[in-house]
């Protein structure tokens, strides 16, 4: 019998890293279906180009870093899909491609590649293109109108709901349209029901901790019920805040990315609360459009701090009580 020497343990759990990232990629496919339903094949083309650019950039950076080509790594696919879903469907093709290249080459590769990035690469890519081509990202096409593959001046573009809220107006969208996502906005972020269903899928697969999106949305609801327009009641204000803009999308897919989250439960709760507070501050006093994404980027900088604080707490408790057994 041929024996192999190997350190213990000799049995392992069945879950493997490539499957974890594939789960998130699978959970991003339903928003693409809805985008295709509302905006036609152009949304799929934008998504395809972004994903191809992100995957190619990841392969090149893998070769450059000497780690070897890891073709089973699904994290650039997730990055590409998230960037594509945050764009309006009428965006010129080069903008999401540039965002994906920036995300992989500048935010992910210099810090160590997969599993070692400090900032969320999709959020950073979106920040870059908002800085460079901000005016082209502010106007969204109207859903359920045919959108040709090459967009020219004949396409009607309107402002999104979040910018209307920022200016102090109330978006004139009825409740059923809000629920179904039949209003102008970024490609994947208007369909609240679909995103909620994907959240349930991710919770069942244990990719996402339940208290992270809950804390985020609860804090935002708290803010929205206190400070609102005089024509809206508190409940309506909460619903409008949650629906307008990319908030639900960020809460489900980008806030819960395991690499940038703190690792202890208390750290995760603090992180979600900070992100919510900064999001609402950006919405009230900021000039930027995707406030949830930028707030997330800022909170990513606080992750090591939360990690360190909670870990110090654990170390102190261990030295005082002698054991952490419950």
């Amino acid at each position: 019998m041929k024996m192999n020497a190997k350190p213990f343990p000799y049995i392992r759990a069945e879950e493997r890293s490539p499957m974890l990232m594939l789960d998130t990629a699978i959970a991003l496919i339903p928003p693409f279906f809805m985008a295709c339903f509302y905006y036609g094949m152009r949304s799929l083309a934008v998504g395809a180009f972004t994903v191809i650019a992100a995957v190619a950039a990841n392969w090149i950076s893998d070769l450059c870093s000497g780690r070897g080509l890891e073709w089973w790594d699904a994290s650039p696919v997730v990055t590409g899909m998230i960037i594509a879903l945050l764009m309006p469907a009428s965006v010129p093709y080069y903008i999401p491609i540039i965002a994906a290249l920036f995300a992989i080459f500048v935010v992910k590769f210099p810090y160590g590649g997969t599993g070692h990035n400090l900032f969320n690469p999709a959020a950073a890519g979106l920040a870059f293109v908002t800085l460079c081509f901000g005016d082209q990202l502010a106007n969204y096409p109207i859903p359920l109108e045919t959108l040709p593959m090459t967009v020219d001046e004949t396409v009607k573009l309107t402002q999104g709901a979040a910018s209307l809220l920022k200016m102090g107006a109330i978006p004139t969208i009825s409740m059923e349209q809000l629920a179904l996502g039949n209003f102008a906005g970024p490609m994947g972020t208007t369909n609240i029901l679909v995103i909620a269903a994907c959240l349930i899928y991710l919770l069942i697969r244990r990719n996402v901790k339940w208290y992270v999106p809950l804390t985020y949305l609860a804090t935002i609801s708290l803010f929205a019920s206190r400070v609102h327009h005089e024509n809206l009641s508190a409940a309506e204000s909460i619903i409008v805040e949650l629906v307008a803009g990319s908030l639900m999308f960020v809460a489900v897919y980008m806030l819960t990315e395991p690499v940038t989250l703190p690792k202890r439960p208390m750290g995760k709760v603090l992180y979600a609360m900070t992100a919510a507070v900064i999001t609402m501050l950006f919405r009230y006093y900021g000039v930027v459009l995707n406030s949830a994404v930028f707030a997330l980027l800022l909170t990513n900088a606080f992750t090591p701090l939360f990690d360190r604080l909670v870990e110090q707490g654990h170390i102190v408790e261990r030295s005082v009580t002698g054991s952490e057994d419950e």
């Binding site: 192999n4 493997r16 890293s17 490539p18 974890l20 890891e70 089973w72 790594d73 590649g113 997969t114 599993g115 070692h116 395991p258 690499v259 989250l261 690792k263 202890r264 870990e311 654990h314 261990r318 054991s323 952490e324 057994d325």
Partner: peptide, 26 residues
Amino acid sequence: PNLRRMDCIGCGRCLEVCPEGLNPME
């Protein structure tokens, strides 16, 4: 048997299961 091994992806599962409450990732 020949699993391709990735580097640490920072998922944090080892922290949840450590019976002593340590941080194996760190």
